[in-house]
Amino acid sequence: MSVMEEVSLARPEIKSRKTFSQQMRDFPWWGVVLVLGITLAFVAMLQSEQYRAALQFIVNPDNTTEIAAGILIKTGVRVTLLVTVVSYVIALVLGLILGIMRVSGNPILFHLSTLYVEVMRGVPMLVLILWIGFVVVPGLRDATNGAFELSRVQGGIAGLALGYAAYLAEVYRAGIESIHKGQMEAARSLGMSYVQAMRHVILPQAIRRVVPPLANDFVAMLKDSALVSVVAVPEILQSARLYVSRTFRAFEGYNSAALLYLILTLLFVFLVRYIEGRWRVDA
């Protein structure tokens, strides 16, 4: 008889199970409460004549269509989304360029981008938007004898985009710096130039890594878009302020604005969570 008995590697499979409290912890109760709360608040508000008027005014001051049709296609919500999306796209591109400059070995590129980032981050967004709206835009108009004049919306978009570009630049820079230096060395050792290595090896990995924080900044920007109300861009907050100043119904006006912002940000927060989940799986 053999002393060496064959050891079977087969074992009964043990499934790991979550405890009840773990399951309770992982379920998005907060989301349920939030969605229920918003729905209840919305339904309650629609019962009230004053709230209906306030909501109507914010989403569609022209009073020509119903509230449901007014959302997304008329002013207020539409302008908020327009300002946010356009500013964000500009900031994404400008931020990427600045972020690449921030990690560059070229002293001119590095110091120019660092100067930009520090100045923009050192000025409150509100001040930046006011400054562009009331100093830069009129200044440009006068300097060009009226040939070049940005609209209020364009001025607001410029302020948000230029300010956020500085923040996004730092996100990109952190992403690029988080890539192990062995990646650049491997690419260069194959004969790639710095630019080729950046484009084909570093940036694809870095950008993948910063998709969640970039998406997060979209939500932050959605909220900060309320700041452009100070240069009279007719977005949600500005419409609400206009409504309040006409009717003196601050309660209805600002509650409606807050609710609309909350609905919009939540929609995108859930989207961001979905994106984060998808991108977290590192290849």
Partner: peptide
């Protein structure tokens, strides 16, 4: 390289 440095993407 010691740590391979393959391009993970």
């Amino acid at each position: 390289f010691q740590l391979f440095n393959l391009f993970p993407h």
